[in-house]
Structures are given as C-alpha cells and as structure tokens.
Amino acid sequence: MQLQDLQSGHEFPAERLVISADDAEAYALAVGDESAHPSERVPAMAVIAAGLSRFISHLGLADGSVEVVHASQEVSFHRPVSPGEPIEIRAVLKSNAERQGSRFATVEMSFVDVSGAQVAESSSLIIVNAS
C-alpha cells in the first residue's frame, strides 16, 4: 500500500488495538509523565500515538525511503481507556494531495470500544518528502 496510490476517502481496514498496563507504563516512562497512573488508565495521548504510528508504518513511511514530518494534530477524548481494553481503530484518508514536490495527507481516526462507542477521535496532517 503506497500513499501516493490512495484516493481521498480511502478507508483503511479496521484494526484492533490493546494497550496493556505494561505498554501504558512504558509510554508514561518514555514521555516522562510521573503523574500518570498507567495501571489504572492509559495516558490519553498514548492511544492517539499508537494509532498514528500504525498508519505511518502500514504505508511504509517509516522505512527511511521518505522523510515524514508531522504538521498538525487534532484530538478529541470522550472517555479514558483502561489498560487491556480492546479498541478498534477506524481510519480514513481524509485528504491526499501533492504540492510542490511534497505530499500532504490527512488521516482521520476513530477509536471505538467493544460497544461501538467512540472513546477518542483524531486528525493528523503529515507531509511526506522524498528523501
């Protein structure tokens, strides 16, 4: 799957995301958040970060063949996520255009619990340049 081949509106296959207590603790340690309680709730931004990383990885944007810059980010949180809780990521390529040799892509992600309720939403603008 190559980003340049995808049209705006492309829907990615839904993915399952589970952030364990150990994963949440590793995230809190990495970002230096000593106030987090990762055994009780996943740090809010960890959910968004995991989703965005998957999108970038699936599109082959993390293999060194291109230079990727994160330009902007929107996030809405509806409720905290518990460690070990299964979440489904539904991602749509909202826009995908090339301008002056750079590709500008916006991916919107919805994070949904087992009942179908949204726990978070995000929109990420990334800029991809040939390296």
Binding site: D23, A26, L29, A30, A50, S53, S57, A62, D63, E67
Partner: peptide, 15 residues
C-alpha cells in the same frame, strides 16, 4: 527518551 518513545509508541521513523 526519544528511543524509548519510539519503542513505546511504535514509531521508528529514522528521522
């Protein structure tokens, strides 16, 4: 910290 974050978040972009 950057390297720990790359592992924790799954973002291993070489930049």
């Amino acid at each position: 910290q950057v390297e720990a974050y790359a592992d924790a978040a799954g973002d291993h972009n070489p930049i």
